[in-house]
Amino acid sequence: MAFDSFSAFITMDGHGPYVWACYAVFFVLMLVMMIGSVRSRTAIIESCRRGYEFQTDKSKVAATSAPSASFERVNVSQD
C-alpha cells in the first residue's frame, strides 16, 4: 500500500474529491453503457420473437379460416 491508513487512502492528501469523482463517473458511465448494451440486445431478441410468434399465429388463423372464407365467397356469388 502507498498509504498509511484507510482514511489517508480516502483523503489522498486533499486530492481525494478529485480522484474519487473521476473514478466514480468513469465506473458509473461504463456500467450504464455495458448494462444498456446487454439490455438493448435482449430487447431486440424479445421483439423479434414476438414478431415471429405473431406471424405464426396469423398464419394459423388464416389456415383455419380458409374454408369459411371460401364458404362466404360462395354466398357472395349467389347474391
Binding site: 487512502f9 492528501d13 486530492h15 480522484v19 473521476c22
Partner: peptide, 25 residues
Amino acid sequence: GVVWGLAFAPKDYLQGNSYRIIFIH
C-alpha cells in the same frame, strides 16, 4: 490496473496523489 494504480503505485513527487487520475484518463 485501477486497484494497483489507486492503492499501491507510489505517489508522484510533484503532483502527489492527484496524478492517480492518469490510470483512467
